[in-house]
Amino acid sequence: MRILIVGATGYLGSAVAERLSNLGHEVVALVRPGETKSLDGYERRIGDLTDPGSLLPAVTPDIDAVIDVATPSGDADTDAAAIDALTRRLRGTDRVFVYTSGVWVLGATADGTADEHSATDPIPIVGYRPMIEDQVLALAQAGIRSAVIRPGIIHGRGGGIPSLLVDLAREHDAPLIIADESVHWPMVHIDDLADLFAEVVEHTPAATIWHGVTEPAVSVRDLAIAAGRAAGVTAAPRIWPLDQARAELGAAFADALALDQSVSARATRDLLSWQPQGPSAISDIQDGSYRSALHHES
């Protein structure tokens, strides 16, 4: 397949592009004007998600699928217009469009474990994202095999939110737990998630939601301790009051990090040939890519 990836130079996008390329697919990277990051030999096309007109020429008849892994703009109308532009030339072709959402649209899951069929209850940082998910799923009625992937908190390759935990532990000389040590995060290794994107783009039925989660509920206390060890910090973990975290990280993001969730991907595993093989979040952070990244920096 010839696959256009929006956000191919990002943390997740680069892993997805690498996986698809290794499987023999031809990757075409949509990048912003002036983007200078290496594309590993992929064809480059130019487009800006805030300028829908710039996206239309990128989706040519030779494109078999479009995967959007770009960071949302933060504006509902802008993101909706970008989705419309990216999919306009896919209508009536049975070609594939995959949109990247996230588990934060499910909100807190204190009453149990959320799955692919659970109702959304988004926190403010992703407040309009369910509307975009609905827009994507409705594209099935226009002859597009549209799908939504909701990743958990991504770890691996020394990046993502866990790298923030390592940086915070180093900066504060102690592992930090934001607001509440009883919080849990759904986790997924980036390489397993890239495998899921490949499975979805190759095999998805239309109008489907998939959860990219390998560990439904990992203790944030344990993650913070692992981050401290990766940073070479031996102090006991301590609570970082939410007001202080908000002041440093921004209120919406700090509140997201304080969100307690348990999220299942059982239906995703049952319906797709997805077989995650990556390390657990704790082992990866404590002894794997985050420790390696720290040693590389030093």
Rank of each mutant, 00 (worst) to 15 (best):
P205W: 07
H211E: 01
G143R: 00
Q261D: 04
F197K: 01
F253D: 00
I144C: 06
L139W: 01
V183D: 05
W210N: 04
L164S: 07
R145L: 02
I149D: 02
P151E: 07
G160M: 03
R229K: 15
I225N: 15
A252L: 15
H211G: 07
L257N: 14
D173H: 14
E215Y: 00
R145K: 00
L249M: 13
P151G: 10
S262L: 05
G156A: 06
R246N: 08
G158R: 01
S264T: 11
E171A: 11
G159D: 09
R266I: 13
A142W: 04
V166P: 06
A245T: 04
W240M: 09
V200I: 06
A206I: 08
T234H: 15
F197V: 04
R221Q: 10
I239Q: 08
P205M: 11
G232R: 07
V263M: 05
A207S: 00
V166L: 08
A138K: 01
P175M: 06
P175Y: 09
E171T: 07
D173V: 04
A217M: 03
V201L: 02
L165V: 15
D180H: 01
L165E: 15
H211P: 10
R266D: 14
L257G: 14
A226F: 13
A251W: 08
I177N: 04
I149R: 05
V136R: 01
A169L: 14
S182Y: 04
A251F: 04
G156I: 09
G160R: 02
E202G: 05
